[in-house]
Design a protein around this nucleic acid. Structure first.
Lengths: 257, 257
DNA sequence: GACAAATGTGCAAGATCGTGCAGGAACTTT
DNA sequence: AAAGTTCCTGCACGATCTTGCACATTTGTC
């Protein structure tokens, strides 16, 4: 790879996603981080980027809508998300459902792993733009603006073509007796498809989802492999009886990153 | 091998691959590296390439070493984008291609209109989340992180199911003779599909795309219905001859260079 | 056909450039 | 305060570039 070529590519990435990370560029181009830093310094001198600790950003902070989106805050769901992300192993193929909790999970995934991520949430795809190690597949279809998810027969058809090691499902309700439930039939059907196409089913549920029952059935309690819940009061009795592994994520009143 | 013949071959490789390496060319043509370097210097003098350490690259639109360009990008694009958005009529179905210019176009669409938007760029779908009047359809498939676009057979298959009134295409190059061209074959094929499935083809091209030719052909000049360009020097002769309606977007930020 | 000029090419020497590494400073996080 | 990153500087080494020169080939002229 020619030096100037590398500079071009860095500029390209900057334009596309608004930021670059020194260490990732080093891996990507197979050069030392020093070289990348020299490159970034050079580009900064020419005004193409703004040098920051760990990488570089576009001079105009708000240019990339993408960048703005990837800078999505690690909210209070991050603890739950980290716990879920820890279940994912290198090399796996993972369905990631739509939903804000799952967006947090996607962000919490280890960038060093090599993963294939299949999602019906466009925002998750864009959030993973800066993970060169990931292969990201988007399930297309009718985009439901309220849910931020692609639904419909198209998405289902595509999902049926793919077998995954794990499905990190977004739920409207999880109940030890009713199982996993969703708010509308279209959503439920796509989720059922993804459940069928995956070996392991993971549910990361915020407190308000626990014990809630929505109208449409997605999966039985017995089909859940891992249930991740927030710290607090929680009767795991019924889940334990169904061979569900329950993980309690530590309460995160912690500092932002 | 004749000298001129060698120069032609080098130019050919430059066009196809975007770069050439001095040492490789020397091996390939069985001449010394000095000769190759002399050739490259010659080509660079004629403007066919940009001489860099180790080889040569395609000339990139050189923005006079200033960051002003990046700052202007946003305004420039939004002016283009507004012009493109004005072509869209209420009730239409519109393919919107990936790319930062087209993201600007999507944002510039009239929220009051009732539209069906089909896109292979997840970020465009999410950007339209706040338009209750729009029906948004996402073309899924392999997500190309650098381009922010879904590509591959899946996306093409889905695109073939949909007929649109208009295709707002993202281009790597538009030339009055070579037509619309793209940087990689997969990208080109999806674009061709969308061209075929639409009645009207709209190209919004920033100045640096005009007159640029990328390796892979997408569409003939004669297939373009509307071409939107920035204010400035521009020879519309060839386009006019092909029945292309040319729109000039007013210059947003004025800065004589 | 012969000769001289112009051109293309290869080689060598020295300058320049790009890169990785080591060590210490600066910064961020715990 | 301590630990872990990231950053910068200086250095060394190899790759690449430029320049000058020699030789071969082509071109133009007598």
């Amino acid at each position: 790879m020619l030096t100037e070529e590398r500079l071009d590519r860095i500029r390209e990435q900057l334009t596309v996603r608004g930021k670059v990370v020194a260490s990732e560029l080093a891996t990507q181009f197979d050069v030392s981080e020093d070289t990348v830093r020299r490159d970034l310094r050079e580009l900064a001198k020419l005004g193409f980027c703004r040098r920051v600790y760990g990488g570089a950003l576009l001079p105009t902070p708000d240019f990339g809508t993408l960048a703005a989106r990837t800078a999505l805050d690690k909210d209070r769901k991050s603890s739950l998300a980290r716990a879920a992300a820890r279940l994912v192993e290198d090399g796996q193929t993972v369905f990631i459902d739509a939903g804000s909790t799952n967006l947090a999970v996607a962000n919490a995934l280890d960038p060093g792993q090599t993963l294939t991520i299949v999602t019906n949430a466009p925002v998750i795809a864009t959030a993973l733009s800066d993970r060169p190690n990931y292969k990201v597949i988007v399930l297309g279809g009718m985009y439901d603006q309220a849910k931020g998810a692609c639904l419909g027969p198209q998405a289902i058809r595509e999902a049926m073509q793919i077998y995954a090691d794990m499905f990190i499902i977004g739920v409207c309700g999880v109940d030890s007796i009713a199982g996993v439930t969703a708010l509308d039939p279209g959503e439920a059907e796509l989720k059922r498809t993804m459940v069928n196409q995956s070996s392991i089913l993971v549910v990361a549920a915020t407190a308000e989802k626990l014990g809630t029952v929505a109208p449409f059935k997605v999966a039985d309690t017995s089909m859940i492999d891992h249930l991740i819940v927030e710290d607090g009061e929680f009767d795991r009795g019924d889940f334990a009886r169904c061979d569900v592994q329950v993980h309690v994520a530590p309460d995160a009143g912690s500092a932002p990153t």
